[in-house]
Write a protein that binds this DNA or RNA. Structure first.
Lengths: 191, 191
DNA sequence: TTATTTCTGAAACGTTTGTTTTAAAAAAGC
DNA sequence: GCTTTTTTAAAACAAACGTTTCAGAAATAA
């Protein structure tokens, strides 16, 4: 009957996500966003909705990518402990590269003011928790990890620990610091 | 010669700080701020300066309060380990009370975009680091802490760890989780 | 081709933003 | 009490904000 949407929605969301990621929700203007997305604001409002709706979609997109990353790791034939250590090292690399984690940033900037965003971030956190928990438990059963601590606790502990590494890197830009803390965390697990 | 300033500047800064703390830098409007400070914007611009300047003063004020808190703790006659454990428990209480830490929030929202703020937050982080480092070192010398880890590493580690507890509480509102992680951290130190 | 529908681009919308101006009120020194 | 200086309150400021309107272009189906 009529014309169909011209722009690629997923690509546009990806671009908007990058803007929000860098600037945060409040200081990313609609001009910043539509410029990056290369669409007119009328197209945005016709298809996706307003700024809040766009933001929710971006946060969802970000956590979808994280979920895919975890699912890929789960397909690996490496031992649970190896998968865990790789995951930690990759988390360190993300921090040191300077992008940091969008989910962490938004948890502090907007989660308290937007329930939908909080729910998405909570689900993301729960998913990462489950991933870590299962890995730690399996590694214990195989004897790769010697600690007698609850896997529940250890999973929570790492899930929150690396947020602090991110803050440390923002303030001090000291990659060595982050690497040493990661190394210490792994050592605590092993013994 | 002439009239003197009518409002109490420190009280006004305190009020502005509370607004920034709750809303963040970008979503706190000048109306929000001057309403809380109970002054007219012309008075603000005549004495303190623009929004950025006010914000810097608020962040500085916040870190001054933290410094005073640490100095009070240092005057205690308790053992280093006791001071350390009390500090950790109080950090947990701050998180659970729901205010969280303004320094952490602002590190994620504005530190990358404002060098002056970043410098203040870095100095604050360095001060807390030194406090923790000295306590840990003294506790080791007295045999209150058994671990052989570097006090430098442990101080960094805690300084960043509790940031993650804060994020965890934002997303999950689970006080038990935070208490267990703190308990685990203390146990790791002790043995 | 024509009719119909929907998308697009540019402009305009009313608000809200941070900031400045203006005129009057208030304090201090002579 | 008068003069001088500075603070104050209220209003006004331009710029930027998120959002909507509107006319025309584009695509589909008949």
């Amino acid at each position: 009957m009529a014309r169909s949407v011209e722009f690629n929605e997923e690509q546009a969301i990806q671009k908007a996500m990058e803007v929000f990621w860098e600037k945060g929700y409040n200081s990313a203007s609609l001009r910043d966003l539509t410029d990056a997305m290369k669409i007119n604001s009328s197209s945005l409002y016709n298809t996706i909705g307003d700024k809040q709706e766009l933001f929710v979609r971006c946060v969802q997109h970000y956590t979808d990518l994280r979920k895919q990353d975890i699912q890929k790791r789960l397909k690996s034939s490496d031992s649970p402990f190896t998968i865990l250590v790789d995951y930690i090292h990759d988390a360190v690399d993300v921090i040191i590269k300077g992008n940091g984690c969008m989910a962490v940033k938004m948890a502090f900037e907007v989660a308290n003011a937007d329930q939908r965003v909080k729910d998405i971030l909570k689900a993301d956190s729960d998913y990462a928790y489950q991933f870590l928990h299962d890995l730690i438990k399996n590694a214990m059963d195989r004897g790769e990890i010697a600690t007698k601590e609850d896997p529940e606790l250890l999973a929570d502990y790492f899930n929150s620990t690396w947020t602090g590494w991110y803050e440390s890197y923002i303030l001090h830009h000291d990659a060595g610091k982050i690497r040493k803390m990661a190394q210490y965390f792994i050592k605590q697990l092993s013994k």
